[in-house]
Design a binder for these strands. Sequence first.
DNA 1: CTACATGCAAATGCTTTGCAACCTA
DNA 2: TAGGTTGCAAAGCATTTGCATGTAG
Lengths: 132, 132
Amino acid sequence: MTRQRQVILEVLREKNNHPSADELYERVRTHLPRISLGTVYRNLEVLCELGQIQKLELSGSLKRFDGTPHKHYHIRCLGCDRVDDAPVAPLNRIEDELYGATVFEIISHNLEFTGYCPRCTKEMHKSGSLDA
Amino acid sequence: MTRQRQVILEVLREKNNHPSADELYERVRTHLPRISLGTVYRNLEVLCELGQIQKLELSGSLKRFDGTPHKHYHIRCLGCDRVDDAPVAPLNRIEDELYGATVFEIISHNLEFTGYCPRCTKEMHKSGSLDA
DNA sequence: CTACATGCAAATGCTTTGCAACCTA
DNA sequence: TAGGTTGCAAAGCATTTGCATGTAG
């Protein structure tokens, strides 16, 4: 556990708004100005394997990271890419529905919502493109 | 509707195994040897906008394309990236669960399964890494 | 004839990697 | 001091884009 890894974990946990590697890099840089982006990527990978954090591979967007290890769903803003936790109960039975109906051995599932955050909703109303 | 666009659509529909742009490019090339990858990308984009096909932005994988416009879920193989349709009924009510519980204006949702296809399952048993 | 589509190649953006120097247990 | 880790720079890969030419309607 190097200083770099420590700071990355702390910074990710203190304000867990699901940052991308690059956003996290910028924040970590205020504490460790000489850290490199490669180190951030490498440590995020290691921390995932250790089960301390999770990598979010949301469709149609770059990778983001979640400071908590517990499984939950997310909502992503189509306007600004902001990611929030989705307040929905996990679908505990959904994988059973596939049993016998698919040739795959199911390992996991993920549910993702997309929509517009308040700011982007307002922005759209201003510019008149309410349907986009 | 150019010849290129026509062929891309036909090839995508005739064997809809959710190819990537590149795989589709290779297949289309057997009919139109001089087509460029850029053209394939551009036409796939256009066909999506026309509602003829859909773009699948599955997490942790490159973009894939589905020759049908109707909404359904998918399963992806963690070993070889093969993508099948998931035989599960659409969750028609799920977005309502978020109503009032999030500040987002929900537009859509997507459910994704991951697992192992028969071939990769067998492969794992052979090499002894049953848990990966 | 005009607008849009093409082929080609270069550019982009995120992510990974090779490598020599550097810590740290 | 041995093994993992770092910073840096370069490479990798999927995708997008600029531009001159070509083609459909």
